[in-house]
Design a protein around this nucleic acid. Structure first.
Lengths: 218, 218
DNA sequence: GTAAAAAGTTAGATTAGACTAACAAATTAG
DNA sequence: CTAATTTGTTAGTCTAATCTAACTTTTTAC
C-alpha cells in the first residue's frame, strides 16, 4: 500500500507524461508545488519501490508497475467524479476536489460498488476515459475544437482543463458534453470562433477556450 | 482545520467519555493502540489548541470546543454509514471501515448532500444518533435486552458493539433494527435468553449478545 | 502505612516528507 | 566554445507523530 503522498506523485507523473511526454524534476516540482530537492528524494524512494525508473539528471519515467498504480488511482478519481455527478447531483465543476480526496480511500468494495451503480461507465463527467480494473485506458481520437474549420459540425466530447473557473464559464454558455455545435466562422486574426448550438445563434469562443474543448466530428 | 490524527484522538476521547465516564491516558493509549508517552504529548498539543483540558496526572477532559469538533466528526461518520447502507446497498457490517476514512474528507458540501439525499436521518444503520450540524445529539432512553424480563415484548433499537463479527452473527439470526421480539424465558444460571420473532420460534441468545442489544419496550 | 504495581511523564531517537543553502551538471546564448 | 542560466543534487534542518528507556507520581495491596 502506498502513502497518500506517493499516490499524488504517481498521479502527477502519469498526467505530466501524457501532457508533455517526458517529465523533468522541475516539471514535477512545479506541478505539485513542492521544491526540487524534495522531489529528487521522493524519486529515489519511489525508485526503490520500483514505481519510477530514476537516474540522476535524466528525465523521470514511471515503470510499468508505476503506470498501473497511477492508472488505478485515476480510475478511483474518475469513478468518484462520475458518481458524485450522476448519483448525488453535483455539478461537474464541483467534483474535482472531493474526488481528489476520495481517490485515496482504501476500500476496493467502495469503488466496485460505484462502478456497478453507475453501470460500468467508460468516461468521467469531463469526458476523460475511466481506466479499467487493470489500469487500461484509451483516449479516443478527438480533435480540439480550435483545429476545426468553419462549416464543420461537431459534438462536444471532453474538456481538457477542468478548473472550476473554466467549467463555470462553460455552464454560463450552456456548453456540456454531447452538445452538437456548428462552426459558423473563424476570425483569422485571433482564431476566435463563432459557433451555433441550441438556442445560442452566434456564440463567440476565444481560441483559449477552443483549445480546451475536445470534439468529435459528426 | 485539524489533522487526521487529531481528529482520531478527538473521536476516541469522545467515545471513551461516553462509555466509561472519565478517560485516562492509559485508556486512550489502549483504545488507539498508541503508546502512553505519545498520548501525553498529543494531549499537550491539543490542550494548546483548546480541544482538551489537560493537567498532569489528572483524567483527560474534552473542552466544549473539543466536544463539538468530535461530535461533528461523528456526524460525518454516521451520515456516511447511513449513506452507504441506504443509497449504495452495503450491509451494516461493511460500512464502518469505509466511514472511518470518509469522515476525514474536507468537504462540507459532500456531507450536506448526503444529509439531503437521506432526508435528514436521525440515526445511523446501527441505531446510534447522528449529531446535528451544531454537534448536538441525544441517545434515547433504551434498555439493554439483557435487562428485560421474560414475557416482555420489545423492539430492536440499536446495537452497542458494531464489530463485523457481531453484526454478521445478527445477520445470521435475521436480527435487525425495528424487529419486534418477545422474550420467552431467561435461563437463571447464565442469563441466556430464549426469544421469539418472525419465523424464529425459539432462538436462544447468550448474555454477551443480549448485553449488546438496545431495545425499546412496546 | 509502607511496598509493590500501575499509570504518567520526560528525554531522546526515529521516520516521512517537507524545506533552504550550497554546489554540480546540463543546457542555452552569444 | 565559453559564459551565463537553468536544472538537478547533496547536505543538513524542521515538524508531526511515533517509539523506547528511564524516572516519577499515584494507586493498590497487604
Amino acid at each position: 500500500m502506498y502513502s497518500l503522498v506517493e499516490e499524488n506523485y504517481l498521479k502527477a507523473l502519469f498526467a505530466l507524461s501524457k501532457d508533455i511526454g517526458s517529465v523533468s524534476v522541475n516539471d514535477l516540482s512545479k506541478h505539485l508545488d513542492i521544491k526540487m530537492p524534495t522531489v529528487t528524494s521522493m524519486m529515489k524512494k519511489m525508485a526503490a519501490k520500483k514505481l519510477v525508473a530514476y537516474e540522476s539528471y535524466k528525465p523521470l519515467k514511471l515503470t510499468e508497475k508505476g503506470k498501473k498504480e497511477a492508472a488505478l488511482i485515476i480510475r478511483k478519481h474518475r469513478l468518484t467524479e462520475m458518481y458524485l455527478v450522476e448519483k448525488m447531483g453535483f455539478g461537474w465543476e464541483e467534483v474535482h476536489n472531493i474526488a481528489e480526496q476520495i481517490e485515496h480511500i482504501k476500500s476496493p468494495e467502495l469503488f466496485t460498488k460505484m462502478d456497478e451503480l453507475l453501470d460500468y461507465p467508460k468516461f468521467d463527467p469531463h469526458g476523460a476515459p475511466i481506466p479499467d480494473i487493470n489500469g487500461e485506458m484509451e483516449w479516443k481520437a478527438y480533435s480540439k475544437l480550435s483545429e476545426c474549420k468553419a462549416g464543420e459540425k461537431v459534438r462536444m466530447a471532453a474538456v481538457i482543463n477542468t478548473s472550476d473557473g473554466f467549467l463555470e464559464f462553460l455552464n454560463s454558455r450552456e456548453i456540456r458534453l454531447g452538445l452538437k455545435i456548428k462552426i459558423m466562422s473563424v476570425e483569422p486574426f485571433d482564431n476566435t470562433m463563432v459557433v451555433r448550438y441550441k438556442k445560442h445563434d452566434q456564440e463567440s469562443l476565444s481560441h483559449t477556450v477552443c483549445e480546451r474543448l475536445l470534439v468529435e466530428k459528426v
